[in-house]
Write a protein that binds this DNA or RNA. Structure first.
Lengths: 118, 118
DNA sequence: GCTTGACCCGGAGTGCGCTCCAACTCGTAG
DNA sequence: CTACGAGTTGGAGCGCACTCCGGGTCAAGC
C-alpha cells in the first residue's frame, strides 16, 4: 500500500501521515525499490486506532507516549492500559460537560421559541 | 466590578477578557474616572454564557456572530435561535462520537486486562 | 510622600496540529 | 520517448485561541 492508498483509506492526508511519521506517531515504513513508503494492513489498523484516540481529544503528545510504549514491546502493556484508563476518565468528564452544554442549548432554544429572549 | 473581579468570578484571565473585547465578543464596557473598565452583573452573565458555548466547542468566529446579532437587537432573536440549533446538532454528533470513543476505550482496556494485548 | 499593585495599551509570542511549498525523482500509459 | 501523476525531502506557513510583555498611569495604604 502506498501513502496515497493509506491516506484514502484512513481519511488522513499524505502530509499528515508523513507528519505523524516525523514526530514518531507512526513507525518508519519499509520502502519499495524507488524509496517510496510501503504500508501493510497492520499500519492501516494502527492509523485507524490513532484516529479514534484523536477523536476523543487525546493530544498528540499523549498518543506519542502510547506509540512509544507500543513500539517498546509487550512488557509495556500495563503502562499503556494505565494511560488509556486515565484518558478514559477525561473522556467521561468531557462527555458530562458536553451533555450539560447540550441541556443548556436546549433550554436556551426553548427560550427563543417561547419568545422569552429579547 | 473591575476587570480583575470579573476575571476572578468568570474564570477567564484579564488578558482573555480584553482579547474578547478587542475581537468584539464582549461589548465595550463603561470606564470609571481614571479610564478603567467597569462591569455590571449583566456582563458576568454574558461571559458565563460565552464560556458555556466555548465548552461545547463553538468556535470564536461563531460566538462572534452570535454576539453581533445579540448586540444588534431583539429582532435578531430568530437568527440567534437558528445558530444555536445548528450548533446543537453538532454538539449531538460530537456527543455520539465521544460515546463511541469511550466504548472503544472500554473495550481496549478490557483487552489489556484480559492480557489479550501484546 | 512613596511604594505597591491593579490597571491601561499595542503588539509580539506561543503551542497545537496540521498544511502547503519548491524542487526533485520515478514508473507507467499513450 | 515523453508527459504525467504520484511520490520524495526539508522547511516554511497557517489558523486558532489565547498569553505575555514593556512601558506607562493611577489610587490607596503605610
Amino acid at each position: 500500500m502506498k501513502i496515497g492508498d493509506l491516506a484514502a483509506q484512513s481519511g488522513l492526508s499524505p502530509d499528515t501521515i508523513r507528519y505523524y511519521e516525523r514526530i514518531g506517531l507512526m513507525p518508519l515504513p519499509v520502502r519499495d525499490g524507488s524509496g517510496r513508503r510501503d504500508y501493510g494492513d497492520d499500519t492501516l489498523r494502527w492509523v485507524a486506532f490513532l484516529e479514534k484516540l484523536r477523536d476523543t481529544d487525546m493530544p498528540v503528545r499523549e498518543r506519542l507516549v502510547y506509540a512509544r510504549l507500543r513500539a517498546k514491546g509487550p512488557e509495556t502493556a500495563p503502562e499503556r492500559a494505565a494511560l488509556l484508563r486515565t484518558h478514559r476518565e477525561r473522556v467521561r468528564e468531557r462527555l458530562l460537560a458536553l451533555q450539560a452544554g447540550l441541556d443548556l442549548l436546549d433550554a436556551k432554544i426553548e427560550g427563543y421559541e417561547r419568545g422569552e429572549i429579547r
